[in-house]
Amino acid sequence: ACIGENSYTETPGNLTDLWLSENQRNLVKELAKTGKPVILVLNEGRPRLIADIEPLAQGIIDILIPGNMGGDALANLVSGKSNFSGKMPYTYPKEINSLANYDFKKSEEVGTMEGAYDYNAKITQQWGFGHGLSYTSYQYSNLKVSQSDFRHGDIIKVSVDVKNTGKVAGKESVLLFSSDLIASMVPDGRRLRAFDKIELQPGETKTVTFNLNADDLAFVGYDGKWVLEEGDFKLMIADQSADIHCEKTYQWQSANR
């Protein structure tokens, strides 16, 4: 079922409803009643809400605005001639008021709120930043960091093994995130620090290595200056994580690092 926006919008204010048009959502609901498996193909310039029809689909392909050769690419992917390898470049909302950046702060979490300071709350989202499936599967293991303690100016080497555990070749985007666990200002929940895309044959394993500049873990403080604060950080790649510690606070004296 190929569905999408009826008309395009260019500037803030000329789109007042994030829901995909009701007539197209009703079409999907009627198709689902036939009992045949439904694959949704979304052709859209921005995320439109589909929460009421998402459960009816056995698969969803978001082609965004694919260009002139998009039809050929889609046919190759659906037929299995090519393998999916795209990752969601933003957080796809599930509700009207659930627009959020992937690096949202804990204080911005809005889902399952029980009180003003429910730190177990979650952002309501259809799909998170970096989400994406393919015809194969990948297993991450053996996350290593060159040093658990660091200071201003250090380069931290981070490596992880990625294995194609499926039956077909595929490409996988390996995403390195960091979290500042405690800071003088409310830190971002996580930040993307590095990424790489690798191709793996069935059963093949590759080691991906990143060079993380410790200064990239700094943030802009209350005084408008960059600061790398002493304290604990967590590095994450898929389901792997490692704890590292900044030994000493360093502050830049100018507005720019």
Rank of each mutant, 00 (worst) to 15 (best):
A1T: 11
N6F: 10
S7F: 12
T9D: 05
T11M: 08
T11G: 05
T11S: 07
N14L: 05
L15W: 07
T16N: 09
L18Q: 09
W19I: 01
S21G: 02
Q24E: 10
Q24P: 14
Q24H: 07
V28S: 06
K36H: 09
I39M: 08
V41C: 00
N43W: 03
R46N: 12
L49H: 04
D52I: 11
E54M: 03
P55E: 12
G59H: 05
I60N: 03
I61N: 09
D62F: 14
I63T: 15
I63D: 01
I65L: 15
I65T: 12
I65C: 13
G67H: 11
M69G: 15
A73C: 14
N76F: 06
S82F: 06
S82Y: 05
N83F: 03
F84G: 12
G86K: 13
G86T: 14
K87M: 07
K87T: 15
M88E: 05
T91S: 13
P93K: 08
K94Y: 13
K94G: 12
E95I: 04
I96Q: 15
L99C: 10
L99E: 02
L99G: 06
N101G: 05
D103Y: 10
F104G: 11
F104R: 07
K106W: 08
S107K: 15
E109M: 11
G111M: 03
Y117P: 09
Y117D: 02
D118V: 02
Y119F: 06
A121K: 00
I123T: 06
Q125I: 09
Q126E: 15
H131F: 13
L133H: 06
Y135K: 01
Y140K: 01
S141F: 03
N142C: 08
L143I: 09
S148H: 15
D149E: 09
D154E: 07
S159E: 08
S159V: 08
V162L: 13
K163C: 11
N164P: 02
N164H: 09
K167R: 13
K167D: 10
V168Q: 14
S173Y: 08
V174T: 08
F177C: 06
S178Q: 06
D180I: 03
D180A: 08
D188C: 02
D188W: 00
G189P: 05
R190W: 10
F195C: 05
K197R: 13
K197L: 10
I198W: 07
I198K: 07
I198D: 04
P202Y: 06
E204Q: 11
T205H: 01
T207P: 00
F210P: 03
N211D: 11
L212H: 13
N213R: 06
D216F: 07
L217W: 01
L217G: 01
F219Q: 00
G221T: 00
Y222Q: 14
D223P: 03
G224S: 05
V227M: 02
V227R: 00
V227I: 05
E229M: 04
G231K: 03
D232R: 09
D232H: 07
F233R: 02
K234D: 11
I237W: 09
I237L: 05
S241C: 12
S241N: 08
I244N: 00
T249N: 01
S254A: 11
S254H: 04
A255I: 05
R257V: 00
R257C: 02
